[in-house]
């Protein structure tokens, strides 16, 4: 029952770096699943346990949903990246509204993971783009085919960005009470995000049918990376106070080294203040007549001597 789903292509060459949205047969399937999951998440949110501000949640939910759709259908790196970002930040905001301030640390871990994911995604796309002629995914795929063989820089980046996006799911698992997990209802939303920003890059860049060896290999590596990253950031956020202190020391050290210039000027000013009375006293002595006449006499002598040339 091969229902030929209509392929659809919407060129947007003035948006971001210029490209468009398009949907092949597989994309429709992806889009459908995303829509269903996102609806469930929305319903959970509206009827969720915590007192929820309807208006703001609806707007955020819609924006994040739009991000997901754009990311799913994007044909170029920039659009994909903006879709991923909108979806990610939107979801965190929604969860925070739903769970309230108690889950601040969990949200912080999720944000940290997301920011790392975005940065690494950015690096990967840039390094691929420098090989390709445009930001279109098919060019990037060929570039990846060249650069991404085996264990290479680009493939590592792919794994890390995938891992950090998928790690978001792990936050559903209640590990310690100091890091309260998201309520299970949030799973559907997090799944959407993980799917789009974690798995989709592999599909777009490595192999659309995930059949090739490297695609399978990276898909296996992503969960491992996810676990590692989630643990790493959880520890970071928990130990935030110590981390802040260290960073504070770094900052003061940096500022002290740089303000040498300013300190130099301060010593200059102190020196000037010290010299001032001596200068004023010397000026007073110059007021005396013998000094003036003597100075006149010596200058006359010097002028006469040097008149012909340097000491004629």
């Amino acid at each position: 029952m091969t229902v030929s789903l209509p392929t659809f292509h919407w060129p947007l060459d003035t948006v971001l770096l210029g490209s468009g949205l398009a949907a092949g047969p597989l994309d429709w399937v992806l889009l459908a699943t995303l829509a269903i999951l996102w609806l469930i998440f929305g319903l959970w949110l509206l009827r969720g346990p915590a007192p929820v501000r309807r208006g703001r949640t609806l707007v955020l939910h819609a924006v994040a949903g739009l991000g997901l759709a754009v990311a799913a259908l994007a044909r170029d790196a920039a659009l994909f990246y903006s879709g991923v970002a909108m979806a990610g930040y939107g979801t965190v905001a929604l969860l925070l509204i739903a769970h309230g301030a108690a889950h601040a640390r969990t949200a912080a871990v999720q944000v940290a993971l997301m920011v790392l994911g975005d940065l690494v995604l950015f690096e990967m796309l840039v390094s691929l783009y420098s090989q390709a002629s445009s930001a279109e995914f098919d060019e990037l795929r060929t570039a990846y085919a060249i650069k991404g063989q085996g264990v290479s820089f680009v493939s590592a980046l792919l794994v890390v960005t995938g891992g950090s996006k998928v790690a978001v799911l792990l936050l559903l698992v209640p590990v310690t009470d100091r890091l309260p997990a998201w309520r299970p209802g949030a799973a559907s939303g997090l799944l959407c995000v993980a799917l789009v920003s974690g798995v989709l890059p592999v599909v777009r860049l490595v192999d659309p049918l995930l059949s090739s060896a490297s695609a399978r290999y990276s898909l296996l590596a992503i969960p491992a990376a996810a676990i590692f990253l989630c643990l790493l950031f959880a520890l970071c956020i928990l130990g935030k106070s110590r981390l802040d202190a260290a960073a504070q020391r770094v900052s003061t050290l940096a500022s002290r080294s740089v303000t040498l210039g300013v300190r130099g000027l301060a010593t200059l000013e102190a020196l000037a203040r010290h010299v001032a009375p001596m200068a004023a006293a010397l000026e007073q002595r110059m007021l005396s007549w013998p000094f003036a006449v003597a100075a006149a006499a010596t200058l006359a002598l010097l002028l006469a001597m040097t008149f012909g040339g340097l000491v004629a």
Binding site: E283, L299, L303, A304, F307
Partner: peptide, 24 residues
């Protein structure tokens, strides 16, 4: 003579123009 004349005239004018040693 030129040297002496210049020295005298220059010192006179510098006194009136208040260049450094004669700025008091």
């Amino acid at each position: 003579v030129a040297a002496a004349a210049f020295a005298l005239m220059a010192v006179g004018l510098l006194l009136k123009t208040a260049l450094f040693p004669f700025h008091f």
